[in-house]
Design a binder for these strands. Sequence first.
DNA 1: TCTTGACTATGGGGTTACCCCATAGCTTAG
DNA 2: CTAAGCTATGGGGTAACCCCATAGTCAAGA
Lengths: 136, 136
Amino acid sequence: MLIGEVARLSGLSKDGIRHYEQLGLIGSTPRRAGTRTYRDYDASVLPAIERVKQAQHLGLSLAEIMPLLQAFGNHQLSDAETIVFLEERLTAMRGRIADLSEIARFIEAKLEAYRAGRGADHARKFCRASSKMADR
Amino acid sequence: MLIGEVARLSGLSKDGIRHYEQLGLIGSTPRRAGTRTYRDYDASVLPAIERVKQAQHLGLSLAEIMPLLQAFGNHQLSDAETIVFLEERLTAMRGRIADLSEIARFIEAKLEAYRAGRGADHARKFCRASSKMADR
DNA sequence: TCTTGACTATGGGGTTACCCCATAGCTTAG
DNA sequence: CTAAGCTATGGGGTAACCCCATAGTCAAGA
């Protein structure tokens, strides 16, 4: 199976597929043709891509997924470890949801105020504090 | 006020400040010193940075914020327009929350299953479908 | 047989919102 | 006068790709 078909079947772009391959998330057997070499994929690449996508949904970066897939592939993760992992992912996900919910509530409040007819404080529309630091 | 103090007071890194300035989100008056030119900021830069951060919280990119700040600054947005804008932001935010919530439910389901003792299907742990397409 | 079309590969530049480093000029306190 | 602590510029890197140009491969049609 050439890359175009994998793209069609997986919904991942050709560039994306080559990117995954470069990161070692999926593999192909090189098929020589004249001076060129084409990537030849077998059907197992499709579930592999799905696994990567699923892991991405869990909020993991491709770099984090790489060793994880190996662990799963080698059955090196016990059920207990898997549960811990999933709990951790769930907590992270809930944290992100909470953050976004807070912002949503903030917008709702602003909207309330505007609908109530108070629209004069343009200058103070976006004002609150934050924290962070860096630069070496 | 030099860049270091702005960084301290705003919580934004020096690089971040220079980045904002390059995009025209904030401004400084150049102060010449020998062959060098230092950025000199006045206090108004702090609320300006806060506004940018607030807009970022709303899910906007810096490129999107640029014209928006001008519109607010010039009072070119009517209350009605502001309400439409905020409603749109709220919808976008709720959409993202819904997406993440779905993933959270997915993780919860997996967790349920694992806690119930079904742990043998490593291979099918991450499996579902998606959709997308591209590559030119 | 030659060409055209559909496919592929590589390499490089772009994106976003910065971070980090090296090099080097300015200023001031000791 | 020198060292410390600030600053500037420029360039490279990140993540997960997208997009383009150039170019080789192959099969079918004229």
